[in-house]
């Protein structure tokens, strides 16, 4: 595949990621509404929201650091997008390089970093509380998430390429069905809830506590970028879980597995209140850490 093709394909897949993310968020809103005895918005609602936001005025607060304020949302958006494109390339075309899993892990930390920087640059007390919470939360949930992926790397003979990891599961059996893999999946699942920032870990935005938190000062298209980031992450993070824990080369299986993870996310979201920051940290540092250690102990099983 030549370089032009790669560029073209990445653009196509980026658009797919955005569209699919917005769609799946729409479905999420619809299901939430049905659970609450409501009709809920139409499935295309999130597309309209983004178009509307792009048409709105973007105001930059006077006290904000202009450069960081503008670039934070763009960087988080691009980070999420790039991670998604890399995963899709290695899954669909087998274009993979050594260490692309590490790259994806790095790229997936960008959205939260963007949120933290954007919140703290906007010069607003509520926004800085939001970003300080985001900082604490990302420290807590990133470690178990990465640790569970490290376990996968260890299980796949220290291979750090997504393609290899998926491929290897053909021979050695699916990771999810081993004891350690199952525990690690559980850990990674909670980590990804933290990464996606949905209830019970939506502390950084907590609408009813700190009024949108880190996003408080954002408006117009910059807010739109954060919303898009969230939409893309909703596809990318489960996709990464699928690749490292279920690993098959069947599109239909991927879609099914995605839907299962998606449903789990929705169930967790709608049956829990928001946790306090210290409770969330305690959850990650105590419960989840023990599980990680357990998964490493049972690595061979």
């Amino acid at each position: 595949m030549n370089i032009l093709n790669v560029v073209l394909l990445s653009i196509v897949w980026s658009i797919f990621l955005i569209a699919a993310g917005l769609l799946i968020l729409g479905v999420e809103r619809k299901i939430t509404a049905r659970l609450q005895w409501r009709v809920g918005p139409p499935w295309w609602q999130n597309f309209t929201d983004i178009i509307k936001l792009s048409a709105k005025e973007t105001s930059i607060p006077e006290r904000a650091n202009r450069f960081i304020f503008i670039f934070a949302p763009i960087v988080s958006f691009l980070g999420a997008l790039a991670a998604g494109v890399i995963i899709i390339f290695s899954l669909l075309y087998g274009i993979s390089f050594r260490g692309d899993l590490i790259t994806v892990i790095f790229l997936l930390t960008l959205p939260y970093s963007g949120l933290i920087l954007g919140g703290s640059s906007s010069g607003n007390a509520l926004a800085s509380v939001g970003s300080s919470r985001a900082l604490k939360l990302t420290l807590a949930c990133e470690l178990p998430f990465i640790a569970s992926l490290v376990l996968i790397i260890l299980k796949s003979n220290l291979s750090t390429s997504i393609y290899n990891i998926v491929n290897m599961q053909k021979n050695t059996g699916i990771n999810f069905f081993s004891v350690s893999g199952f525990i690690a999946f559980f850990v990674a699942f909670w980590g990804s809830i933290g990464k996606l920032g949905i209830v019970p870990f939506d502390l950084a935005e907590a609408d009813t506590e700190i009024a949108g938190g880190a996003l408080f000062e954002y408006s117009g298209i910059l807010l739109g970028f954060f919303k898009l980031t969230k939409a893309v992450l909703f596809i990318v993070v489960p996709l990464l879980l699928i690749a490292s824990f279920f690993g098959s080369f069947n599109v239909l299986a991927w879609i099914l597995e995605y839907l299962v993870i998606f449903l789990l996310l929705i169930i967790v979201k709608n049956t829990n209140p928001r946790l306090r920051i210290d409770q969330s940290l305690r959850f990650f540092w105590k419960v989840i850490i023990i599980l990680i250690i357990a998964s490493f102990v049972f690595m061979k099983i």
Binding site: K52, D207, A211, G212, S219, L223
Partner: peptide, 8 residues
């Protein structure tokens, strides 16, 4: 929404 910056 919680912030006037997000409002229409």
């Amino acid at each position: 929404v919680g912030s006037p910056k997000h409002a229409d």
